[in-house]
């Protein structure tokens, strides 16, 4: 089985976000980067599926050279090779078109990625890729097994779960608890250094949306503290002052 796992290179979930250059660029000073947490779940499940039934895992990133440490980490976790499409993705459609261009010649049985990237939170790239390749897409997938040519999986629906079966190939947006995150071991880290990482240039795509500026939410006012022995006044304040009850 051939699996393609798409990963994003995103600021750590605990990163403080600020901007530079007149609010047109993310301030990267002091920001740690990580593999998108949802993508990391997808990768972990791909590694488990490969351990069980063999096959290969290619990891794909649409990003600039600063993604390489995350790509090497994915290789250390268990991917066999990597492809990076060299560009700064700013739009879901553009990103999906790059993934589809790579995937179309690869005959992948499974294309896995996170349910969304945690920088832009769009949650649409898996659907776009699926439609561009003419194959089904599902998200958010929280359980996945492969039997022969059939995927048996569960996706989260509002207030519960739906269990599905579908023939491969598929594009799946993943989330926990599909697998536990994996930490690379020393052997993985050593072998990752020599695994192939191919850098390709992006294909031309119509520019359908472009970022013009960033902004931050208005700062929150001070928290009004209510003494515990007067907790009941909270309900009055929520009614008369905040007017939310």
């Amino acid at each position: 089985m051939k699996i393609l796992v798409c990963i994003t290179n995103v600021p750590d979930t605990s990163a403080k976000i600020s901007f530079t250059d007149n609010n047109t660029k993310l301030n990267k000073a002091g920001v740690q980067y990580m593999i998108g947490p949802y993508d990391d779940y997808a990768l972990a499940r791909a590694v488990e599926l490969k351990e069980k039934s063999g096959g290969s895992i290619t990891v794909l990133n649409v990003g600039e050279a600063d993604s390489d440490p995350q790509i090497r980490k994915a290789l250390a976790i268990g991917a066999d090779d990597a492809i990076r499409v060299n560009c700064d993705p700013q739009d879901s459609y553009f990103t999906a078109a790059q993934i589809a261009a790579v995937a179309k010649d690869g005959n992948y049985d499974l294309i896995l990625m996170g349910r969304e990237s945690i920088d832009f939170n769009s949650g649409v790239v898996h659907g776009l890729v699926g439609e561009m390749l003419g194959i089904p897409s599902f998200s958010p997938v929280m359980k996945l097994d492969i039997e022969g040519n059939t995927a048996k999986f569960a996706r989260e629906i509002e207030g519960g779960k739906e269990y599905l079966e579908a023939p491969l190939p598929l594009v799946l947006g993943c989330q926990e608890p599909i697998a536990e995150w994996k930490i690379p071991n020393m052997r993985g880290i050593m072998t990752a250094r020599t695994k192939p990482l191919k850098v390709v240039e992006p294909v031309d795509v119509n520019n359908l949306a472009s970022l013009t500026a960033y902004s931050l939410p208005a700062p929150k006012g001070a928290c009004k503290m209510i003494p515990a022995d007067q907790a009941e006044t909270l309900i009055t304040l929520l009614k008369t002052e905040a007017k939310v009850l």
């Binding site: 976000i17 920088d119 832009f120 949306a209 970022l211 960033y214 902004s215 939410p217």
Partner: peptide, 11 residues
């Protein structure tokens, strides 16, 4: 964007 930590203006 950034899970509510910021906004982007998009054309």
């Amino acid at each position: 964007i950034y899970t509510g930590k910021a906004f982007a203006t998009v054309e």
